[in-house]
Design a protein around this nucleic acid. Structure first.
Lengths: 339, 339
DNA sequence: GCGGGAGGTGGAATCGATTCCACCTCGGAC
DNA sequence: GTCCGAGGTGGAATCGATTCCACCTCCCGC
């Protein structure tokens, strides 16, 4: 009954396309496209009529159609373990603001450390034809998909750990150096029995940090048993148990070097619960660390710098840079908060 | 010279399309599509040949083409002030994991509180044809674009503050109640001179929290001058100056209620610097609050719950729910950490 | 006067997945 | 034997922006 030409309800109006814009502006679609993309020659007259038509119709160009035709998407994927983790969320922000300047959209996703999630996310990003990828991967995740995307022209930058099975740019905190700085600080304060609590040994950074700890000990000409190293997942109860047993030992440590954020927090809670006051140096800064009693000295990583540098490497590649894989080390900073 | 039929280099091989899959599987493209989308009738035989062909070719379906044809994108936008802010990053994570279960991709972006960025981001999300939007906006940002997207069938959920100029679902912490709880806690501890440091008065939550503060005072039958309220941007120096002047006054406050995260941190630093010990209650929890001296009592917001509920409201709408705008209040929790 | 380059322009073909319609083949009901 | 519906299937048309080619008009140089 309702004739198809009847006045459509406002919400039913099809959204305008380039064709509509062309019609209203009295030009061809080619000209509209040239205006939209600010390329090719367009007379000032045509240009102004097109922009007027765009405003009049409230035209927004459809990203899907553009991407389909272009075969690429003006976006880059950011794969992290958890977007809510302060380290990664700062990284995210830095990447976002660096790439925003190049009109690239960031598609961020959390893997939760699960390899199957990693696969799903990477496939999804490939399906979206991202132009680049900034990734942190669990150690056991399969990198082959990333390698094949790289061969297909997608620029890949690893952060927090390097690629293991193929050549790719990477940006890492110099963990080894940071750990060394932390231990040297404790040694300088006179400690000779230091408990070192590191992350799971399968973790790349954990190995680096262990090496840095040993560097410090060796450089000081001390015996390796000046440090008591544990490598385990940063679990609150496990850390507490470990600390309790260390402190109950014959030669209890007088200081603790904690290899990551969560272990540091667990350590602080545990020492508080045990009623002991020990010098603690943690890897990764914590908000309020300066207000603790005793204040917490840390080796701080600069997540924003890592994100900015990773973005820069990516943008270089997108701009045509075609050298071998680069590795950038970002210096950690020792923030001494002595009591 | 090089014949066009010559063996292409591996990286030059065009990526396979449904057509290729169809050819290899010996079926039509319609059948391939039916398999990919698990809809319509397909014989077991065809199905297995299609999946085999997909594996063999390493086919991944192109999202842009799919979205173009479908006219929608199986994704929702998340617009926050800053993805690196702990509150928003937790919200982000919660939204991400809730929507992941419905095969929706989250496109997150930070506005940095700038209205022009808000406009850019919203336009970008509209161009991507998101099916829904979870947004926090600066108070002065223009909502009309969101309203028109809503008319076009995009489901919009506000978080942290309600929509002001149109009807939309929203999920908010019950700030008023939270502030009241915080003040009542301080009153119960005997305080009768409380400094209240709130965010900028233009901020929606700031007004709510002020109301909650007054609720508590009124309910206790006290005179309003039991509280000394300031509303200002959470700037470290400003807070320090304000506190110094309050403490130098005739009847200095014996406790402080701080209306947000950053003000709380500024307050703690300032009291530490001034060498005074005051009871402090803060709105928003902080990671190490329990390890401070004195420990910090807080009114905690549940960012994850807010994200989960917002996602739920969105999913309902996507599933066809079509009622009036809903407002969900999430209860804050008073976490008492008495010395 | 003519050739040719620069400045502009229109529009058909294209990207790849989905959708819809036409159509095929059985098997069973009558 | 015929009809019908259910189970399946192929493939052309479609979504909307970009791209490329053909073509048009000046204007300059010789």
């Amino acid at each position: 009954m309702q004739p198809t030409t009847g006045a459509p309800s406002p919400s039913a109006t099809r959204r305008p396309t380039v064709k509509d814009v062309a019609r209203v502006a009295g030009v061809g679609v080619g000209t509209v496209s040239r205006v939209l993309n600010a390329e090719g020659k367009v007379s000032a007259d045509s240009r102004s009529r097109v922009t007027a038509a765009i405003d009049e119709l409230g035209y927004v160009r459809d990203t899907a159609a553009r991407e389909l035709r272009r075969g690429a998407s003006a976006s880059v994927g950011l794969l992290v373990e958890d977007v809510a983790d302060p380290f990664y969320s700062q990284l995210h922000r830095a990447v976002e603001s660096a790439l925003d300047r190049h009109d690239l959209t960031v598609l961020a996703a959390s893997s939760g450390g699960s390899s199957s999630q990693v696969r799903r996310i990477v496939d999804g990003l490939a399906a979206r034809r991202v132009e680049g990828l900034v990734v942190t991967m669990p150690m056991d995740a399969d990198e082959s998909r990333l390698a094949s995307m790289q061969r297909d022209g997608v620029h890949v930058v690893f952060v927090d750990r390097p690629a293991l099975t193929f050549e790719a740019d990477s940006v890492l905190t110099d963990s080894r150096r940071g750990a060394r700085m932390g231990i040297e600080h404790l040694l300088a304060r006179g400690h000779r029995r230091i408990a070192v609590l590191l992350d799971d040994a399968r973790n790349f950074t954990s190995g680096e940090r262990l090496a840095g700890v040993l560097d410090a000990i060796d450089a000081a000409g001390l015996a390796r048993d000046a440090v008591e190293v544990s490598q385990a997942a940063p679990d609150v109860e496990a850390v507490a148990a470990r600390l309790a047993s260390l402190l109950a030992g014959e030669e209890p440590p007088t200081a603790i070097f904690s290899g990551n954020n969560r272990t540091t927090v667990a350590t602080l809670r545990a020492t508080r619960a045990l009623g002991v006051r020990l010098d603690v140096v943690g890897f990764d800064d914590l908000e309020l660390a300066d207000l603790l009693d005793p204040p917490l000295t840390v080796v701080a990583q600069d997540a924003s710098a890592i994100g900015a540098i990773a973005s820069q490497l990516l943008v270089d590649r997108l701009d045509g840079h075609d050298g071998p894989a680069r590795r950038r080390l970002v210096d950690p900073v020792l923030i001494v908060r002595a009591p």
